[in-house]
Write a protein that binds this DNA or RNA. Structure first.
Lengths: 126, 126
DNA sequence: GACAATTGATTACAACCGTAGTCAATTCTA
DNA sequence: TAGAATTGACTACGGTTGTAATCAATTGTC
């Protein structure tokens, strides 16, 4: 990612819909969002803004624009993740992980999976 | 936290300074921020806004206001954390942890610490 | 007590955000 | 082909954010 643009909270919702089912027209994107929370025109505005920001692209197909993401969800997560980490946890990964372990729901299999990953990264308690 | 208010990126910087050394006047807060990136008046504005939002409080002491946080850093982290989790990782903790483990720097002792925490939470691979 | 220095209160202002409405072009449909 | 329906383009508008400047009150200083 050549310095990723800022994606706002609502824009993220649109992005997630698009990632789930590319490419889509504006109408199709709306259909994949919580129906009572979004108006067509609002979705349209966000799609235009996202394209202006360079996060998605569009191509005319018949009477509708068809949108497609430019960055993968993984790329955007990585970017947002490091922003979040430095803003909220002063860049310290371990304290952050500990907080999430404390506060959020983790199933046994989640825990096992994470431990396995950690083993591959090193440490002596695995 | 009775539904925590939104704290913007820059406001977070001010908050972190305050948490590190409460209570402080606006001048003292500035002194604890990267000096070439902040003007006194800007810091003042953020302090006023944060108080309006109910995130900090102030009390007059002589000619200066003395500010003090109303929420702990832990509380705010928890709130921001769950926002981030649902926005970027669709509320799924494990994938998020895995991403951070992949992408961020973790020392051996970090890894050990995290594993220990996970052991206390359950799982079978500890 | 008069002037200077300090500091808060008020005001400014553009960009971004959430949330759409209106206008206009295109395209079915009868 | 004329009207209806669809859909993008453009416009709107108040709230938030980043970034401060100006105005005014308070407080030292001589």
């Amino acid at each position: 990612m050549p310095d990723a643009p800022k994606i706002s909270d609502s824009e993220w919702e649109v992005m997630k819909a698009l990632w789930d089912h590319e490419p889509m027209t504006a109408v199709e994107v709306l259909a994949r969002l919580p129906h009572d929370q979004w108006k067509q025109k609002t979705v349209n505005t966000f799609l235009v803004r996202l394209e202006t920001k360079g996060v998605i692209t569009s191509k005319r197909a018949g009477r509708a624009n068809v949108y497609r993401t430019f960055y993968t969800e993984k790329e955007c997560r990585r970017f947002e993740g490091s922003q979040f980490l430095s803003k909220v946890f002063r860049g310290q990964v371990a304290p952050m992980m500990l907080d999430f372990i404390e506060n959020e729901e983790l199933s046994e299999s989640d825990i096992d999976m994470i431990k396995k990953l950690l083993d591959d990264r090193g440490g002596s308690n695995g």
